[in-house]
Design a binder for these strands. Structure first.
Lengths: 197, 197
DNA sequence: TCAAAGTTCGAACAAGCGTTCGAACCCGAT
DNA sequence: ATCGGGTTCGAACGCTTGTTCGAACTTTGA
């Protein structure tokens, strides 16, 4: 069934955009109907309800991020370089999929029950990937700090949706380079010169 | 009027906690009534409505953060040291006022109209303060990068509400030190050795 | 051409929401 | 005792919400 899948994809894309603009709880099914060109009742042919719409947006986006990161990281063997590839991928993917990534970042706790658990499984794998990269980069660092540093890095990268303007002065590549420079320079490299570890 | 002010304060504190736990749009006035010990109608004697409740929580908290940061920064004249003081203050204040700061960070666009504008005025002053610190620390850095770096730092610091557990292994001071180390080491110091500026 | 399957949607429903209103309460001053 | 202002709240209102249902439309295959 091709047209069915296309229409579902269309609905999900529009929903992501509206969720990103108004927030999940503030957008109504009527908003989504208007944005997708369907009728209110018509959407229920494609989706069980509002919560499933959010879940599908998050699951699909997060799956793509994880797969993309694993592939990107495989492009090098040097630990620092692999970390840089991870950061570059995350930031450029974020900038290229602003709506979906904003929904993923900002509506993380808007899902409940089994649906939230399902997304959290992907999230755990993604966090584990970064922590393993950090372990290779800074094996002498205490585990507590490495874990907190991972979240600090995610903070830098995910906060993007609060301020980044695609039409602004800084392009995604440059931003990715800046963030990579800050984190790698501050956490991975400067340890022996700045604060002996 | 002393008991009046105390009850308003109590209401705001409980509201901040519930907003932080359930999110602004998902908490009902009935939730807030139950959490504050007042009746549903009783709250309207202290507050014009739900939106004003959120506005008061954000304004009061943000005003305290700004004042605290200005005071903290005044404790040194050396640019790097002033930046470190700013970071330390923000992170420790965040950890000490988790509920309010989560509401401030996560519900930034849940306010509308005049109320949002009022909070944004404080935010602008706060961002300007950090950018001026960065200008002193890295005067040769392009303005675009400095501005983006400021947001990256805010991202590291504000993302805290998504993962930080006050009962966890890492205490606020150590976290503040880690974030300061990452940012200062990566942005301010390593410029000439890592990527010549 | 016809019937079945796939797809759309107007209309309505029950539930929950923020807010309002007026009556009741409390309490110091008369 | 009584007044009056400050304070509380039960009850209700009007509106919006997510969801459902069944009828209608469209496409498909023989």
């Amino acid at each position: 069934m091709r047209p069915y899948d296309e229409r579902l994809e269309h609905l999900l894309a529009r929903a992501a955009k509206v969720f990103a603009e108004k927030g999940y709880h503030s957008t109504t099914m009527r908003d989504l109907a208007a944005a997708s060109g369907m009728s209110l009742a018509g959407m229920y042919y494609y989706v069980r309800g509002k919560a499933e719409l959010l879940a599908l947006v998050q699951e699909r986006c997060f799956t793509r991020v994880l797969a993309g990161a694993e592939q990107a990281v495989a492009g090098a063997t040097e630990p620092v370089e692999r970390l840089q590839l991870f950061i570059r991928h995350h930031v450029t993917f974020f900038a290229a999929n602003l709506a979906e990534m904003k929904v993923l970042s900002h509506e993380a706790s808007s899902l409940t029950g089994e649906r939230q658990r399902k997304v959290n499984v992907i999230k755990r794998r993604y966090v584990d990937l970064l922590e393993s990269l950090l372990k290779d980069v800074a094996p002498d660092e205490p585990q507590v700090d490495r874990s907190a540093a991972a979240y600090a890095l995610f903070g830098m990268m995910n906060w993007i949706y609060n301020w980044y303007d695609p039409a602004g002065e800084i392009d995604p590549d440059r931003l990715a380079g800046l963030i990579a420079r800050i984190f790698v320079g501050g956490f991975a490299e400067a340890r022996s010169t700045v604060q002996g570890g």
